[in-house]
Design a binder for these strands. Sequence first.
DNA 1: CTATCTTTGTGCACACGTTCACAAAGGCAT
DNA 2: ATGCCTTTGTGAACGTGTGCACAAAGATAG
Lengths: 263, 263
Amino acid sequence: MATGRNHRPATSRSRGIPEATVARLPLYLRALTALSERSVPTVSSEELASAAGVNSAKLRKDFSYLGSYGTRGVGYDVEYLVYQISRELGLTQDWPVVIVGIGNLGAALANYGGFASRGFRVAALIDADPQLAGKPVAGIPVQHTDELEKIVAENGVSIGVIATPAGAAQQVCDRLVAAGITSILNFAPTVLSVPEGVDVRKVDLSIELQILAFHEQRKAGEEPATAPAEVDTAPPAAPPAVAVTKRPPESGPDGDLPAVMPA
Amino acid sequence: MATGRNHRPATSRSRGIPEATVARLPLYLRALTALSERSVPTVSSEELASAAGVNSAKLRKDFSYLGSYGTRGVGYDVEYLVYQISRELGLTQDWPVVIVGIGNLGAALANYGGFASRGFRVAALIDADPQLAGKPVAGIPVQHTDELEKIVAENGVSIGVIATPAGAAQQVCDRLVAAGITSILNFAPTVLSVPEGVDVRKVDLSIELQILAFHEQRKAGEEPATAPAEVDTAPPAAPPAVAVTKRPPESGPDGDLPAVMPA
DNA sequence: CTATCTTTGTGCACACGTTCACAAAGGCAT
DNA sequence: ATGCCTTTGTGAACGTGTGCACAAAGATAG
């Protein structure tokens, strides 16, 4: 989902683990961790697949990209597989992360318990509001944007989380990249453009809802009953007629803010 | 990303708009809305594609599934296209939404400005904590879980957002489905299983970070320099040896909580 | 040691998604 | 009117992802 340059072949060429597989590894890892906590020694592909909500053939194929870690007739050793997947995902390393934009969402993210659990550590919270500077959120004092470059450099941060309003996101992104960050998780409803070599993944509430609405509408359309109240909007005249409907200029496309903040 | 039954062909059969295209429509819509607000009358596929961060050929093919709304030699009429995409996504209707689990994240979502902007309306906030009942969050009083079925029925809600801890998610999901909800946006780090006909999409911070970490690790591995401090973990003995490392039982796999809440 | 049974690992076929590249369509100037 | 120039819409080739179905591998019992 890197949005900047989309010229990278979807598969990672280094050891050729398909992108779709990489995206499922965290899912397997979560299911395996749960089994591990219940001291279950081994699982079959069938059981694990069902716990992860995928097809067992897919799971076996996914694991085959990592190597042959199963035992035929028995299944997979839970602990061993947890270790192998963790290693493949790079979770045996320590990943310091900075969160930029400490509004409603940023604060919620900072408080997220599952962060520390797996290699990730909130190294710093950054916000442009001087009023916030010094105030602790989730036990970590918020620092001012001026310090961004210093913080990234001193802590060797390579992953940044953007939870700012859409208007500020690209600017923050540019500074993060300039400071040396090469992976970004973007919660702001904007397309970020980044130089080659920087990965961007986005999380967008509004997009997810719209996709659900599409399918919901289809369902309602198929069964004659239970159609939500149709709000009648006059369609703008056919394409040739250049519409002239003006609106108040300046103000971000969507809510402008990420899934957060008192509008 | 519906996790329950994964037997539905990825494309929507009704009028055959590919799933991948549906997922991009909101992106186009956002870019078009921005243009509309600047009173730009028309755009070429090239311009719009660049604004949406995609390839122009892909964009044209995407639009071709909706019909022929462009004018050769000129481009697309912005207002007209906004209307067509909105209609296709079902955004000309009113979609009441309930949010279940008003912790840090739930509150952040409730405060999200972009909600109302596009057909979506927060119909109710629901939480299991009796202490919260009645207290307003984002101007809407929180209601107790007991009221769930009534709220869904009376407001004709068909979309539910789950922002509870992982442990409660499946249970909440079941109740939502039983109450008549057919689309769910899940923020809890769990696989939800739902009956056929119910769509589930998930948003998972921890998974996104792990995917970033994977790529980050690869980058670091390619260039000899700048490798993060390797935390040395002894790999559990080879698969045959059944590991016996026990851990404190009972306690969700990941942070157990969705990307939220003071752990 | 052999037979049987379970479960992995994967070859193969098919479906989906992306991109190229170009003909057809329309606007615009002369 | 005619011809040029721009930009769409799409056929076709390619790459990625999914799922079936089965042979090979190993465990286990007799």
